[in-house]
Design a protein around this nucleic acid. Structure first.
Lengths: 352, 352
DNA sequence: CTGAAAGCGCTTACAG
DNA sequence: CTGAAAGCGCTTACAG
């Protein structure tokens, strides 16, 4: 059995003082700013406190009080039978883990198929929850109905244009820009953005696609947008089949950037079925990064959404609202950065 | 002298227990989740703790350790001789106040007119600062240069498309959408968006202008964008003078939504000089909300940016990075909601 | 900045 | 859930 540092083996300032090689009182002074301590010692102490997890523990303690039960409202039909729902499912798993870690009980909402503010609030009250997380839904009526209540509410993975409730989401626009910029940097000029008429968060990926062209002073006409009829792989296949048939080939496009891995999976299948080599003839890049890399042949280059960090940020946002420091504060929208995962389907990078 | 509650008169759980009318031990159990307490009592205790500022104090204590000196890098030329720079100035004032409140020392960067990562990092090290706030600048080279360092960095009021450093900014897109939506709800259909080729954050206001039309399924062609040559009131006057001359009048437009109060001030002056009544002939709405309402005649309806909250969020973002809980976490972009301040120039609202 | 010491505030275990 | 009590961890004041 490996000698892992147990998560909370009562680490105190005594441990920190030993680790930093300073007196107990010095640690206290550094942590509270109660005496002038040289920068050199300060840094050493803080480094030790951070390393031992003492700073994190202390910070956690400040927040832990207010949230004991979280009421979770998810639109029905988010079971993992395709990639999009795999995203949902994985995000919910991350949220559960985070709650477990912090000793927060989760109660799931069950009501009418269409989420409804009154029902959700009633359910949350019945469950004696201090906070509500609404996931994957941005029905304005729903959000407006929730905003007025005394229970803290956060929207996860959605968009509230009225900015009446706090929101946590991946940085869709910047992530899409990142992927497109990477393709442009690797010499691609004609990139096809395969998307669908989804929720507004998906539209932000389209914005980012255009941003990348604009930033290089390239005409956005070089890139084209292809709208599939939905987000299933089959929709991607259909759209690309029609595209290739109509244009009599790839029409000069050398890359497809898909607004979701789910579409990318369909794109890989269809393009290969049509006889194109990936990435030699055409590169394919996805968005989400939830499915394992070896799920596809070739493996999928994609933009990974930081699910664990999203879950943590969700709880943190709620706890801050509940702590009272944040009442009467304007609603916050928190977007977390996404990373490009370079695998095979995007081709190898010529940039540093 | 009013009997104000002094900010930190040693409020402890004893005070909370008295306020909530429960035992000392019960308060402790509620705050730490160490015993099952009825929801009713929990709520009463937390409410008391929040009211007395104990929750906030406890949370503050968790964060306070790591940041003692903040290094502030502002591009030169942000003195308040016009509204845009009044925004800068007021935001910096809010940041100073927030730092003072928390006992954080601010050291201002002074270097070459063009901010430069190497210089800023050297300056921050010399000042023994744990964190750097870059304000109003989104030169990608600068941000990239700062991202790699061991010092915590936050960008205030800017945009980092690479998402390599944390950013705090107003929700420009949603704020602009809010104002435009308000005008549309009040019956305006042809709205002129007066802007200039500014930083990307200003372009987000343009995005929001379009969003409002799209959301109502109105053609974005109903709205038009008029680009002034800069953000001074005089630029607004010039642009509107040319517009009216060219179109032989207001050309059916009934509202001007300006991307900054500074432009709105020029718009009010020019439109009135041309003989139009505000808001009867044409409504004018601004963006920023920093200048006093009675600065203009008529007073300016505008979107107010939450400066104090931005300052607080900036410090909080830095402290979280420094606490170690947030290392290796993806960069966060935090946008705070803006509110519409209804005064005279926008006309009176017919919506609830 | 150290180190021993006093003190304070919070936690915890327990009988009621 | 209360209330008295023991204990623990951190803070604080001070001589060196």
């Amino acid at each position: 059995m490996p000698l892992e540092r147990r998560p909370d083996r009562k680490i105190g300032i005594k441990d920190v003082s030993r680790e930093a090689g300073v007196a107990l009182s010095t640690v206290s002074h550094v942590l509270n700013g109660t005496a002038p301590i040289s920068q050199e010692v300060r840094v050493r102490v803080l480094e030790a406190a951070r390393k031992l997890g003492y700073l994190a523990k202390r910070q956690r303690k400040g927040a832990i009080a207010s949230l004991s039960t979280l009421y979770l409202a998810v639109p029905p039909g988010n079971l993992p039978h395709n990639d999009i729902n795999l995203v949902s499912w994985t995000l919910l798993t991350a949220l559960s883990r985070e709650c477990e870690r912090r000793g927060i009980r989760i109660v799931a909402h069950s009501g009418a198929p269409q989420l409804n503010a009154t029902e959700i609030l009633a359910g949350a009250r019945a469950a004696e929850a201090e906070a509500i997380a609404v996931v994957f839904d941005d029905n304005p009526k729903l959000l407006k109905g929730l905003a007025g209540s005394d229970i803290a509410v956060v929207l996860l993975n959605g968009e509230d244009p009225t900015m009446s409730i706090d929101t946590v989401a991946p940085a869709n626009r910047y992530g899409a820009r990142l992927a497109t910029e990477w393709l442009l940097a690797n010499g691609h000029r004609r990139i096809l953005h395969l998307t669908w008429r989804g929720r507004s968060t998906i539209m932000r990926r389209l914005d980012g696609f255009h941003d990348a062209y604009l930033q290089r002073d390239l005409s956005t006409d070089l890139g084209e947008v292809l709208c599939a009829k939905g987000y299933e792989p089959e929709h991607a296949r259909e759209a690309l089949r029609a595209f290739v048939a109509e244009r009599g080939g790839l029409d000069g496009f050398t890359a497809v950037f898909c607004a979701a891995d789910n579409l990318a999976i369909g794109a890989l299948t269809e393009l290969q079925a049509l006889g194109f080599r990936i990435p030699a003839d055409i590169a394919v890049v996805g968005f989400d990064g939830v499915a394992p890399g070896d799920l596809t042949q070739p493996s999928l280059t994609t933009v990974r959404v930081p699910l664990d960090a999203l879950a943590a940020a969700t709880i943190q946002a709620l706890e801050q609202r509940l702590s009272g420091a944040g009442r009467d504060q304007p609603a916050a929208r928190i977007e977390l950065g996404c990373r490009l995962i370079e695998r095979e389907s995007g081709g190898s990078s010529i940039v540093g």
